[in-house]
């Protein structure tokens, strides 16, 4: 097990954050949020990995076979579902915003101030 997957997870999180902070387009911002979230997938799967482990499906392997941790995979699946919900809802809001304001640039959407 190397340090690399953890560094990758941290990098993805930071890249997503950078994109969110500098975004000039809300669709892009929602995409960046999804990028940020994918760092959680990488981290979870990296945590459950075991050297030489195979997929935890016991249909065709002996029950004492070395497998990776199935718990984190279940967590990742749930996480994907959560992410899909959030992304879909936010994109729907962006579409409505575009209909009402005619723009998806956060710099031009600043009625809520102070």
């Amino acid at each position: 097990m190397t340090l690399l997957p953890y560094l990758v997870a941290g990098w993805i999180f930071l890249v997503g954050l950078y994109g969110l902070v500098t975004s000039r387009n809300l669709i892009h911002a929602v995409g960046c949020l999804a990028v940020t979230q994918s760092s959680t997938y990488v981290l979870l799967l990296a945590i459950g990995y075991r050297d030489g482990g195979t997929a935890p499906v016991f249909a065709d392997i002996p029950t004492d076979a070395r497998v990776v941790d199935p718990v984190v995979q279940a967590l990742t699946l749930t996480d994907v579902v959560v992410g899909a919900t959030v992304t879909a809802l936010l994109l729907a809001l962006v579409i409505q915003l575009h209909k009402r304001h005619g723009t998806v640039d956060p710099d031009e959407l600043s009625e809520l101030k102070g």
Binding site: T40, L75, V86, L89
Partner: peptide, 30 residues
């Protein structure tokens, strides 16, 4: 209406980000 969408957008982006930070922490605890 125009303004509720903007408020919901800021709410959604910041809170979801918070949720993912929380999940990263949960993964570390696991």
């Amino acid at each position: 209406e125009r303004r509720p969408l903007q408020g919901a957008m800021a709410f959604g982006l910041v809170n979801s980000l918070g949720g993912y930070a929380m999940l990263l922490g949960i993964a570390l605890l696991y």
